[in-house]
Amino acid sequence: MLTLANHTFPSRLLTGTGKFSNPSIMKNAVKAAQSSIVTLAMKRVASHSAQDETLSALKALGVTLLPNTSGAKNAKEAVFAAELAYEALGSPWVKLEIHPDQRYLLPDPIETLLAAEALVKKGFHVLPYCGADPVLCKRLEEVGCVAVMPLGAPIGSNQGLQTKPFLQIIVEQSSIPVIVDAGIGKPSEAMAAMEMGVDAVLVNTAIATAQNPVAMAEAFASAVVTGRKAFEAGLGATSDLAQASSPLTAFLEPTL
């Protein structure tokens, strides 16, 4: 169970809805992922034909919708986007993301912290996408975010846990849930993150762009469950030298 802002969610795999070839495949993939929380974006739309079917497909699944502030380039725009999402959905959940640079889509730490503080004061449940910076994650926790979402690698890059040593520090220090967002490209990487003790992972591109998104969603779902089970079981210690698994008796050696 994942607990965020006193709400419990059965799944530790959050799914993004972007990049799927159509809403029907997206819906089936989210179902196969067994996700409890699913992300969406806000967009200007001028006609019925431009209004996509994502929202109605997700409402049918009964998942918690987590709108993001993608497109915002500073704190002011992100707060505006969050308020629009609140008006559209009537829900206080928001994935705060502010990435002014289009090439690497890396989150702006200063604007993110400013926006997080403002949104918490307005009563939002804020989940900020952020760099894997342990100090920033503590600051985001202090201003009242319900979780932190440090990146494993740039959005959509499928490069995996490039930030692993820093994620480990964040997990060690954080008193709020840690959700690895961005960069996870394979189920083994999601599992590795869960084994480290992160509370959840968010996966979008790796599922949406797989040859078979529904099967990939299933693979991620079982990887996350297995990784969490391993973490809870307590991993054995690592060692530079061999540690014998069998008794080192001398019975095979010739007698003198």
Binding site: G16, T17, G18, K19, F20, P23, M26, T39, L40, A41, M42, K43, R44, V45, A46, Q51, D52, T54, L55, L65, P67, N68, S70, L84, A85, A88, L89, I155, G156, L202, N204, T205
Partner: peptide, 10 residues
């Protein structure tokens, strides 16, 4: 007037 809606996104 600006009209916004929710669309697919990560």
């Amino acid at each position: 007037v600006d009209i916004f809606t929710l669309v697919a996104g990560g």
